[in-house]
Simulated scan of single mutants.
Amino acid sequence: MVSHRGYWAGGTENTVRAFEQALAAGSGRVELDVRFTEDHQPVLMHDATVDRTTSGTGRVSGMTLARFRELRTADGQRPPTLAEVLELLRGGAEEALVELKEVPDAEDLRSLEDDYDRSGAHRWASLMSFSPSALEAVRSIPARKGLLSTAAPPLSLAGKLSFVGVRYDNLSEALTREYRDHGMAVYAWTPDDESAWRRLAGYGVDRVITNETSAYLAWAREACQP
Rank of each mutant, 00 (worst) to 15 (best):
A201F: 12
V186F: 02
W189L: 06
Y116R: 00
T176G: 02
A66K: 11
E113K: 11
T37Y: 00
E99Y: 00
T213A: 07
P191M: 02
T190Y: 09
E212I: 05
D181E: 15
T54M: 02
S119A: 15
T12Q: 09
E194G: 07
Q77H: 11
I141N: 00
E113C: 09
K160G: 05
V208N: 02
A218R: 11
L135W: 01
E194I: 08
A220N: 13
S27E: 13
D51M: 10
H182Q: 15
A24L: 13
T12L: 02
S149A: 15
A25K: 05
R29D: 01
V34A: 01
V103P: 02
E70H: 03
H46D: 06
P80M: 06
S156T: 14
K101D: 00
A137P: 04
E38W: 10
S55N: 12
A121G: 03
K101R: 09
P153E: 01
V103I: 15
R198F: 12
A125V: 11
T64E: 02
V166P: 03
L148T: 08
S61F: 08
A48G: 15
K160W: 08
S111R: 07
L23G: 05
E38N: 03
A151H: 13
M184R: 01
P226K: 05
G92I: 08
R144H: 09
S214W: 05
F68W: 11
M1K: 06
R78K: 11
W124P: 07
D115E: 13
R69Y: 04
E13T: 06
S131Q: 14
L155I: 13
A201M: 13
A66Q: 13
R90V: 12
Y168W: 15
W189T: 04
S195D: 12
T190W: 02
L88A: 11
R35F: 08
L32M: 15
L147N: 00
T210Y: 03
S119C: 14
E136G: 07
A106V: 15
T57R: 14
A74Q: 09
R139E: 14
V43A: 04
S126R: 14
G183W: 09
E38R: 15
S214F: 09
P80H: 07
E178G: 04
T213H: 08
G91F: 07
E84F: 12
E31K: 00
L86A: 00
Y187H: 14
P226W: 04
E107T: 13
A96M: 10
W219H: 06
L97H: 11
L135M: 06
R5Q: 08
G6K: 02
R67Y: 04
A134Y: 01
F68S: 05
M45I: 14
G26C: 08
H182C: 13
W219R: 05
T15Q: 02
E173W: 01
E31Q: 00
S131T: 11
A93G: 08
Y187N: 10
S131V: 04
V85W: 04
V166A: 01
H4W: 03
W8N: 07
A223H: 14
G58K: 07
R221P: 02
L127N: 03
T176L: 08
M45G: 07
D115H: 01
F163G: 03
K160L: 14
R52T: 11
A220L: 15
E107N: 11
L97W: 08
P153T: 05
L86Y: 01
R110D: 12
T150P: 03
W219Y: 14
G165C: 10
Y216M: 07
P226F: 06
G120H: 10
W124A: 12
